[in-house]
Write a protein that binds this DNA or RNA. Structure first.
Length: 466
DNA sequence: ATCGGCTCGCGCAA
DNA sequence: TGCGCGAAGCCGAT
């Protein structure tokens, strides 16, 4: 049974007699998905078929080939698993009113279920859809261990205010997932009317995945990351390796970007190919490496869900207005401070600063679609130091992270940038030029903590893959 | 190598 | 109203 507190009503109304449709927007997986489990529960209750639909809009300016191919590759796996459980998978493209709305009407959908995201893109979309269809819409928080609207009813000030609230609810929510069961009511896929239209000899909806991959018009200069393989199965293998081999060193070395002790799961969490709750559930079982276990769970649950809390309750999660007032005032006071270096977006993007360590981090981001957690802080703080205003620094950091990182366009990224540049969830520190009271970080700090040379060497040059 | 100060405000105890 | 302490640090004194 799906906990009712995971569910919010986006559009009121009685559930109709037609099929239940899960419009998958964020959690692109078949297993360990509360939104899917809830949709099935409703479909069984009303004795109707269940289907899953993914809609690709045409005008996602920030989407590029890197993100799109990662998403589509994983989606194929998800579609296959859904269909082998009697749940047909549909794709629609372009204008939602022509596609999704029509789909809902043609198939006489009785209930729409979706997964929760705190980001504007998603909130605005559902706001529009809920005014455009005549069907109840239920939203399920399938991404967080504890539902965002339940854990706290306001923007939390810092991790310590949020931590108690999460921990209080964890015993109720950090539970084992039920396995997805084959759906007992047949949709009759031969009646499917979706792009690409048609069915194969077994009556399954035909999807031209190669066509799907090429469908969007986007910046193809950001190449797919060949070193990171997409998909839920891969994610589970990576989790297994992390638990067996890497987590034991997590506490000691997690801030050392030359060591391989992090889970590397964030792209998979970002695209919902693995559930954070599944990761937490497996890691929590550990009876060894307790210190590492707990610091990993802190990052995975407390800090990740704190970022969701921030984006959920603060509309300005991606700009200067989102930073706490003490930092806003302090940064404004230091706006006119002399900068030793000023770089343009292009110079940052091409790793053309005077700082080899910074350039290495940027290269890691561009080439590998990720950046080590510790380097993200240093990286963003230096962008503050080397641009004219904190507003511009935030803009550039978010743009680069969203464009190149596989886990970009995600609450974690926005909260991370605002933590680094705007003191979000942090405290005030001794005043310095440019930074004001925002925590300062520098090259010598990195040198104290890890072997800077090794890191620089690893990402030196322009076509490095490790 | 280690320590205190820097500096703000939330939330709880009283 | 007072007080402890916090998302990952820096720096100078000892």
């Amino acid at each position: 049974m799906v906990d009712e507190r995971r569910v919010r009503i986006l559009r009121e109304g009685n559930v109709g007699s037609g099929p239940v449709l899960y419009v998958m927007g964020r959690d692109f997986r078949a297993q360990d998905n509360w939104a899917l489990l809830y949709a099935q529960e409703q479909a069984k209750k009303h004795k109707v078929p269940l289907g899953v639909l993914v809609h690709f809009g045409r005008n996602l300016v920030q989407t590029n080939e890197r993100h799109h191919s990662f998403l589509v590759e994983g989606l194929q796996e998800t579609a296959t698993e859904l269909e082998s459980n009697g749940i047909p998978f549909f794709l629609t493209f372009g204008n939602w009113e022509q596609e999704v709305k029509q789909f809902v009407e043609v198939h006489e959908i009785g209930l729409i279920v979706t997964d929760f995201s705190p980001l504007h893109e998603s909130r605005w979309w559902w706001d529009e859809v809920s005014h455009g269809v005549a069907v109840p819409i239920h939203e399920v928080d399938a991404h967080n261990v504890v539902p965002a609207w339940l854990v706290s009813d306001k923007q939390e000030f810092a991790a310590y205010t949020f931590r108690r609230k999460v921990h209080k609810l964890l015993p109720e929510f950090l539970v084992k997932f039920p396995k997805l069961e084959p759906h007992p009511y047949d949709w009759g896929v031969s009646k499917t009317a979706c792009w690409p239209r048609g069915v194969d000899k077994n009556g399954c909806a035909l999807i031209d995945w190669e066509g799907v991959r090429k469908f969007r018009k986007f910046d193809s200069s950001v190449r797919p990351v060949t070193s990171i393989k997409s998909g839920g199965k891969t994610a589970l293998q990576i989790l297994d390796i992390f638990i067996k081999e890497k987590i034991k060193n997590y506490d000691q070395y997690r801030n050392d970007p030359t060591r391989d002790v992090l889970s590397q799961l964030s792209p998979y969490i970002r695209f919902g190919q693995i559930s954070a709750q599944r990761i937490a559930y497996e890691v929590k079982k550990l009876r060894r490496d307790v210190k590492s276990r707990d610091s990993f769970l802190e990052e995975l649950i407390v800090r990740r869900e704190l970022a969701e809390n921030f984006c959920f309750y603060n509309d300005n999660y991606d700009n200067f207005d989102g930073v706490p007032s003490w930092a806003k005032e302090s940064l404004s006071e230091h706006k006119k401070d002399k900068r030793d270096y000023i770089y343009t977006l292009k110079q940052f993007e091409k790793s053309e600063t005077h700082d080899l360590l910074w350039n290495a981090a940027q290269t890691e981001l561009v080439e590998n679609g990720k950046m080590h957690g510790f380097m993200r802080m240093y990286w963003a703080k230096k962008i503050l130091e080397w641009t004219k205003t904190p507003e511009e620094a935030i803009k550039i950091s978010i743009l680069l992270n969203d464009r190149y990182s596989l886990d970009g366009r995600d609450p974690n990224g926005y909260a991370g940038v605002l933590w680094s540049i705007g003191g979000l969830h942090d405290r005030a520190w001794a005043k310095r030029p440019v930074f004001g009271k925002v925590r300062y970080m520098n090259y010598s700090g990195c040198k104290r903590k890890f072997d800077v040379e090794t890191y620089i060497q690893r990402y030196h040059g322009s076509s490095v893959n490790v």
